[in-house]
Design a protein around this nucleic acid. Structure first.
Length: 1156
RNA sequence: GCUGAAGUGGUGGAAUUGGUAGACACGUUGGACUUAAAAUCCAAUGUCCAUUAGGACGUACGGGUUCAAGUCCCGUCUUCAGUACCA
């Protein structure tokens, strides 16, 4: 009887479906085990052999666990919202739901034929309203929650509101936007409802905010960071730009620390955890504030332009004095002229030139009368502001400031002097008031830099190197840049900013080597040394990370070092005994700090701690932890996604009550954005929310809210709905909970409390590594949130996770020789005569080469002759080129030989192609391993494999290819190996007369083979080493065959071992052995050591570590006896050639090694 | 650059604790069966030398530890994956 796999597989698949063999129950005496695959997006292309790899592995594990006595949940479903169905809809007008439905049918058929033990009664589809109802519900929960840093968990927004109304927000330690002002409970209670909503939005875990997003114009939507690869979209490779848009965001950053800590509690690969750690990007360090001095060094005062404002802060008089001296030495013409007159004592008072008053240098001052005279050049706008601020402060100190322009002074010095004189006389009377107001004055004086918030705040992980700061660098986009830049530097800085803005994100990323930047002319003050530090801008500082500004320590950071070298900025060394003449010393280890005042001699740890302490003492900084993880943008300008349960009243988002969910995706006539740039939902005619009747109604009923009317009546209580949809990761962030409940019972909740309690979380999760930072991070975030709010009981969704490796295609390439005979087109020629399509076989041997060259030449000259004959006058020029061309792998056999006939029929253009073959008439292709792709014709469809070899062969072969987690090439030819094994296995049980198996007593060898196989297979499955199990089956089957084993007590348990891998044949034979029940829950055979105990061992006898021969010796022989026996052996004597060994190593049961 | 994984026959891979390197397959070669092909079965198959017996060399490269190293240690190179001016 033949192994009729097609019949067998069909029958058993039907049996499993009919008997609901794999239906999981939500209560059982057995321990639970939850095995999950990452659910697929049902693409139109269907499955190729790479897709089922992970499913086969998880199925083997699920089936194994059933044999081991577990109540196994092994569900499957579809991540059915997504771009391809929408793109297809845009092109064809077909509703994405229809496309999706069709694709799912194909997927289901393909999955079914492989014989998976899925419990389909729990299927989910993210695009089903009954499913996304709960996605919307979770969104509402997020909206109605805030993150309390004191309790370190999410809480209902109600607790926040009650805190606001009882104590205001000053004491609240929440994860929230950073632009929130402090208010008291009275203020809160007096705020309008709209203002309150506005404030609450800044605290909610999902919030609406104008954010800079990754906008992909080609796709017409925003993309998350993990949807962008190398600066272009993951799907389609379209360019991505930064754009400001109002979007829903998820406050995942609130969970950064817990997402990081949670990694230590789960069994994932190190590389995956590392990816997540990188993505979260925790750095511990300090936040430091550097006051801006805005005191440009070396700035020349010229005729035409006036120096920038003299705004300063902190104690820097030494610098100002230096500066004043410089200015005195280089007066402008007007200043020189006026000084001439003032000094010439034409007036009654004593004036000083370029004198220091407080933090300011003034042009001229009469100290007695507190009169300041300023001579201004052309004043820039922002300098007026600065000068006004300065004037204000000086006036606080009871100085009077009068101003003249250069022109006034140079034109008519006399009238200027007259004005000064007049002021001097008026100042007499004011002088007396001064003392009485002294008290008042001291209250009002503030350090100006601080007053205006003109600090530069930086984040550093190396506060220990703070004395190594020799400059600061701001991102070109930093908001302070335009305010601190000096006139001199303005042109340069502006040019630099423009140049940077022009460069795309991608260029900036690609070109890291080029150092660029510009000096702003401004200075900041070092918090400890009080020395001025030049402020630069440079695009190596990113606006999006930290504060968008850095304190540059060239001796300790290579980027700062390179920047400093490039712009000739000093590089002070603050490391003890480290040479920094070539490069920065970036390490934190093995070094002590030097030239750093109170930090001298300390190591990284102590110095950092001390520096932070000192900064805190001075109020100029504090210890801080920074995360790279950004809040996740949650809006997509797409049709085929979950609609938001949100409507807007006067621009403020409102949640639709849970009772009215789901809000079903509306119909649109086209799936493109509207002409006005709104998302596709903007095309829906019925997309407004009727708050009275709680239903979606026509847009026409919405009365425009112009003029700010807020009363319900004027709207009829009907408001516009949100036009964005949710991103792909919304539905996939919680689907594993939905499976916990049977379809029949999941209307009331996303899953019942009992179900959630019973199944807890996924014990084993298998899927691709491409989700390392997307799906796997978002899911963890949502689960933690749901745990906080008491909706689920677990902290982590996936206890153990394995990434299956990619299966690559083995492309087949032929060498094509194209020959063209260019001719003048004016003639009406037979074109087919001029193009020759010639393929040449790939084999490289010399003999063939000669033959082939000859033949190629033959073909070409023959054609030339034909042309000559037809067009005798034509001047023929021959042009030849060879290029490799992909051919469909299905035309190629295991020996890399091309089926020429099949290839000719592939395409019309190859019908008359010529082939130059090997000597034996075969045509060889060359092979290349690359990603499976339609365009490379190397995609292998599992349908064809199942048809030709059967699902069991496919399952075994996919496992046999290599380790699960490793990428490996597919080569269909190799499947004959495992298929042959199944045929042999069949013959072990069944022959032409029917069943061979009988009640024969097992031999010792039979038992040994069986138990060795039990042990190996069990260990392999536990270690997910599925490839080695397959060879173990082959070995066992070969041994049983050699042993002519027919014993049922051996061959029956062997089927259970095989059943997870090749379930159909196992069921069939199991059934033939007389079992009525499915094999699927038969207990896994118990391994018994006693059958493996050997009486003797074939010892390898080594000489100096090299094995020379083997010797069969009893297992219980003593060490001494082994040595004696071996030494007496004739082969030993021959090996030694009379030498006396120095040493003999005997490891009983292992090896004998003779040294000498 | 950083992080992680890896490098073994013609190919996929095995060797899980340092103890006979190349299991199990594919492919190749030869043979049996057959009119023939397919299927099936048998044998050989790391490289080199040798008629045989046997020997030398072999796990990316260079060192080291050990009676013994694919496995452990140091250094170098290469490949793949992820990530990237993250301060």
């Amino acid at each position: 009887m033949k192994y009729d796999f097609n019949r067998i597989e069909n029958d058993w698949q039907k049996y499993w479906a009919d008997n609901k063999t794999f239906k999981a129950v939500n209560n059982s005496d057995k321990p639970k085990y939850y095995v999950l695959d990452m659910f697929p997006y049902p693409s139109g292309a269907g499955l190729h052999v790479g897709h089922p790899l992970g499913y086969i592995a998880s199925d083997i594990y699920a089936r194994y666990k059933r044999h081991k006595g577990f109540n196994v949940l092994h569900p499957q479903g579809y991540d059915s919202f997504g771009l391809p169905a929408e793109q297809y809809a845009i092109q064809t007008g077909q509703h994405p739901a229809i496309t999706t439905e069709t694709n799912i049918k194909t997927y289901r058929r393909q999955l079914d034929q492989i014989g998976f033990s899925f419990d389909w009664s729990r299927e989910v589809r993210t695009s089903n309203p009954e499913y996304y109802k709960w996605t919307q519900w979770i969104f509402i929960q997020l909206f109605e929650s805030w993150y309390n840093n004191d309790t370190n968990q999410a809480e209902s927004i109600d607790t926040l509101i009650s805190k606001f109304s009882s104590e205001g927000n000053a004491q609240i330690n929440a994860e929230c936007d950073d632009d929130i002002s402090i208010f008291s409970s009275e203020e809160w209670n007096s705020f309008s409802s709209e203002k309150q909503q506005d404030i609450l939005l800044k605290y909610r875990l999902t919030y609406l905010a104008e954010t800079e997003v990754n906008w992909c114009p080609a796709l017409g939507t925003v993309l998350a960071n993990d949807e962008i690869v190398n600066g272009v979209s993951e799907r389609g490779g379209h360019p991505v730009m930064r754009k400001k848009m109002t979007q829903w965001s998820m406050r995942i950053s609130a969970y950064a620390e817990r997402l990081l800590q949670g990694l230590d509690t789960i069994d994932w690969t190190d590389s995956l955890k590392e990816s997540q750690r990188n993505w979260i990007g925790k750095s511990v360090g300090a936040s430091v504030r550097f006051p801006i001095l805005s005191f440009p060094k070396g700035e020349a005062k010229s005729d035409s332009s006036q120096p920038a404002g003299y705004m300063t802060g902190g104690n820097n008089s030494h610098l100002l004095i230096e500066r004043a001296q410089e200015m005195r030495a280089n007066p402008t013409k007007a200043e020189a002229a006026l000084w001439e007159s003032l000094r010439g004592k034409k007036l009654d008072a004593k004036f000083r030139q370029q004198h220091l008053i407080g933090d300011f240098i003034v042009d001229f001052v009469c100290l007695d009368k507190k009169l300041i005279v300023e001579v201004d050049g052309k004043i820039h706008e922002n300098q007026i502001e600065a000068d006004n601020a300065r004037t204000l402060r000086l006036e606080n100190d009871y100085y009077k400031v009068i101003r003249f322009t250069n022109e006034e002074v140079l034109g008519d010095v006399e009238s200027v002097l007259e004005k000064i004189n007049k002021e001097l006389s008026q100042r007499e009377s004011i002088k007396s008031n001064q003392q009485s107001s002294e008290q008042h004055k001291s209250e009002k004086v503030l350090p100006l830099g601080k007053d205006l918030g003109w600090d530069i705040e930086v984040f550093t992980t190396r506060p220990d190197t703070i004395f190594g700061v020799s400059f600061m660098t701001l991102a070109p986009e930093h908001e302070l840049v335009s305010r601190i830049v000096t006139d001199e530097q303005k042109t340069e800085v502006e040019a630099y900013i423009t140049a940077t803005a022009k460069r795309s994100e991608r260029d900036r990323m690609a070109d890291v080597k080029t150092i660029s930047g510009a000096f702003t002319g401004a200075y900041a003050e070092h918090p400890f040394t009080k020395k001025p530090i030049p402020i630069w801008i440079g695009d190596y500082v990113l606006a999006g990370y930290g504060t968008g500004a850095v304190m540059s320590v060239p001796c300790g950071d290579q980027r700062d070092y390179d920047f400093a070298k490039h712009f000739n900025i000093p590089i002070p060394n603050i490391f003890e005994g480290v040479d920094i003449s070539e490069e920065a010393y970036g390490s934190k280890d093995n070094v002590k700090i030097a030239n750093s005042d109170f930090l001298n001699g300390l190591n990284y740890k102590k110095a950092s701690k001390t520096a932070i302490y000192e900064l805190e003492k001075r109020g100029q900084g504090e210890g801080k932890t920074n995360y790279r993880l950004r809040d996740a943008v949650f809006s997509r300008q797409r049709y085929w996604g979950e609609p938001f349960p949100v409507y807007y009243v006067n621009g403020m988002p409102q949640m639709i009550d849970k009772a009215h969910l789901p809000i079903v995706l509306p119909e649109v006539e086209k799936y493109l954005p509207t002409e006005t740039g709104e998302p596709p939902l903007g095309r829906a005619t019925d997309w407004a929310w009727d708050t009275k009747n709680n239903k979606v109604v026509s847009n026409n009923l919405v009365i425009p809210t112009e003029g700010g009317t807020t009363d319900e009546e004027s709207h009829n209580g009907i408001y516009p709905l949100e036009l964005n949809t949710m991103p792909g990761w919304a539905g996939s962030s919680w689907y594993f909970f939905r499976y916990m409940e049977d379809k029949a019972n999941r209307d009331e909740a996303f899953a019942s409390e009992d179900a959630l309690k019973y199944w807890e979380n996924v014990d084993l999760y298998i899927g691709g590594s491409e989700h390392a930072t997307g799906h796997l991070l978002y899911s963890r975030f949502w689960v933690k949130f749901m745990k906080d709010r008491g909706f689920v009981n677990v902290d982590e969704p996936f206890k153990k996770l394995i990434n299956q490796g990619m299966i690559l295609g083995t492309s087949a390439l032929v060498s094509r020789i194209g020959i063209q005979f260019p001719s003048k087109p004016d003639q009406d020629v037979d074109k087919s005569l001029f193009n020759l399509t010639l393929f040449v076989s790939e084999n490289e041997s010399e003999k063939c080469k000669e033959k082939k060259e000859k033949e190629i030449e033959g073909f070409i000259s023959k054609r030339e002759a034909q042309i000559k004959q037809k067009y005798p006058d034509m001047n023929i020029i021959r042009a030849t080129r060879i290029w490799p061309m992909h051919v469909d792998v299905s035309f190629v056999n295991a020996s890399d030989e091309l089926d020429i006939e099949a290839f000719k029929n592939w395409r019309e253009e190859y019908k008359d192609a010529e082939f130059i073959t090997e000597v034996d008439g075969t045509f060889k292709v060359s092979r290349e391993v690359e990603k499976m792709s339609k365009s490379k014709y190397n995609v292998v469809n599992p349908d064809a494999i199942c048809e030709q070899y059967g699902a069991d062969s496919l399952r075994l072969y996919e496992m046999f290819l290599g380790p699960l987690e490793q990428a490996k090439p597919w080569n269909t030819a190799g499947i004959t190996g495992v298929h042959g094994f199944l045929k042999k296995l069949w013959k072990l049980y069944v022959d032409d007369n029917g069943l061979k198996v009988n009640d024969a007593e097992p031999t010792a060898d039979n038992l040994k083979t069986l138990h060795k196989t039990i042990k190996k297979v069990e260990d392999d499955i536990e270690n997910f080493s599925f490839n080695t199990s397959v060879s173990t089956f082959m070995i066992a089957s070969n041994e049983f065959t050699a042993q002519k084993c027919t014993s049922k007590v051996i061959l029956e348990p062997f089927l259970i071992l095989l059943s997870p891998y090749a379930p159909h044949i196992a069921e069939e034979l199991w059934n033939r052995l007389g079992n009525d029940e499915s094999i699927s829950t038969a207990p896994f055979p118990k391994f018994e050591e006693k059958y493996l105990v050997e009486s003797s061992k074939n010892y390898p006898i080594s000489f100096n570590g090299k094995m020379r021969f083997t010797l069969e010796l009893p297992m219980d022989m003593s060490k001494d006896d082994i040595e004696k026996t071996v030494m007496a052996h004739e082969k030993t004597i021959a090996q030694l050639e009379g030498r006396t060994p120095k040493k003999v190593i005997v490891v009983p049961g292992k090896i004998v090694n003779i040294v000498g």
